[in-house]
Design a protein around this nucleic acid. Structure first.
Lengths: 226, 226
DNA sequence: AAAAAAATGTCAATTCATTGACAGAACTGT
DNA sequence: ACAGTTCTGTCAATGAATTGACATTTTTTT
């Protein structure tokens, strides 16, 4: 590694595993670069980004280099190009068919609140087991009964399922989704899903997040300012 | 450190900083221990927990030890005791006054969906700048205009603000909250808040989370199974 | 009561992540 | 076209987190 010359900008990178620590930072880079782009700024150096984002310039360069060098010595990075490339790394150049399972408060809020289409997520359907909701339209999408889920996932090539159901049902639904060929689960249920590692799970455990906040609040109180 | 004898179970631990990596795992321990407790299980060893939770037993012991030894050699950990202690560490034994700022889809969903009271969070109010929402009741709590926010936070000793407003307003609102004496912000806005480090911020950037998911989905596709 | 088994707390080793340093490439101004 | 400046890509050093190993304590069995 290292002596494979990059002869035309974008670069071949062999299949070395990138750490999740790096991946977790990419969306934030993407967000800041998008803002710079919108402001009409064309170039940026790692030092400038460092100042704005409050991370070390070294880390920025190291992170980008995992994917093979997007910058130019003496110049910096072209904002638009870098933005596009990070988008591609994150898979945002591809379309992903998505459904929401659980049309309660949270499911409905996500349907309305997330701008799925903006980033290539195609919102294809919504499911619940509460008959009172069947047929109700949310974002132009009627709520379907859970009985139809399995066939729907197969027939519509659903890639991503958003799980916003109580934990009691979540594990079983996840297993079914795996059988039906789902590729990723965005899991809001308060439970850990047990799926093959070929299926990607991204957990959003809101209670956990809130507990971290209270820990930090109380730690600060107790220790005085550390 | 190390030769301060723990002579009665719970233990004095001096103010050494605990890494956020450890803190992030505590809510998950808490969840699993709660489940064990509900099943009536009284004792558990680090090895048993390891099997259930899929983390190494060594890490479990190391994590707990940061707070001073909750177990007993040859026996293991008392589930209920450990559960209580972790709850205390996380600050769940204390009451926290909480408000939601932004009564849109997400704000309303959180108000209804999170069982705030269950963990000592007292839901005290909800704010928005949309007049159409003023007075609307969500979880028995009427939506108040933003003009009243500042006084309300001061008068009601609000500890935690949940920010579910668009990013355009978020930074300014956060600054105001700091002036009014807030202690923690649970931030759902797609922007990084710039507050003194005495104020705790816990970010929930949902888009970032979804991007991580697509990265992992696409990585798996491209590399074949790693 | 003694021996065997179980399981923690903790030290050391290892692995992983971040930061620092700098050679060399590209740009900029004269 | 040259000299000076900028700034990346990358290697090495440092720091942080995880895992492994084991002495010691307690429990359990005989």
């Amino acid at each position: 590694m290292g002596n494979l010359l990059s002869y035309q900008g974008a670069v071949e990178v062999e299949n070395k595993e990138i750490s999740q620590a790096v991946i977790s930072r990419l969306p934030r880079y993407f967000r800041y670069l998008g803002e710079l782009k919108d402001e009409g700024i064309e170039r940026v150096s790692s030092q400038e980004l460092s100042d704005i984002m409050k991370v070390t310039a070294s880390q920025i360069r190291q992170d980008f280099n995992n994917f093979g060098g997007f910058g130019q010595q003496g110049y910096g990075y072209k904002v638009e190009y870098l933005y596009e490339e990070i988008g591609k790394i994150l898979g945002l150049d591809k379309k992903h068919n998505l459904i929401i399972i659980g049309a309660g408060n949270l499911g409905q809020a996500l349907a309305n609140y997330m701008n799925f289409e903006r980033r290539g997520f195609l919102f294809k359907g919504m499911f619940d087991n509460n008959p009172a909701l069947f047929g109700k339209k949310i974002r132009d999408m009627e709520v379907r009964p859970m009985e139809e889920l399995s066939a729907f996932v197969r027939e519509n090539n659903i890639d991503i399922a958003v799980l916003t159901i109580p934990k009691s049902g979540a594990v079983a639904v996840a297993e079914q989704l795996v059988k039906d060929g789902i590729r990723g689960i965005w899991n809001f249920a308060h439970v850990d899903l047990n799926v093959p590692k070929s299926i990607q799970v991204e957990n959003v455990h809101l209670s956990d997040s809130l507990m971290k906040l209270t820990y930090n609040i109380n730690r600060y109180e107790q220790n005085g300012n550390i």
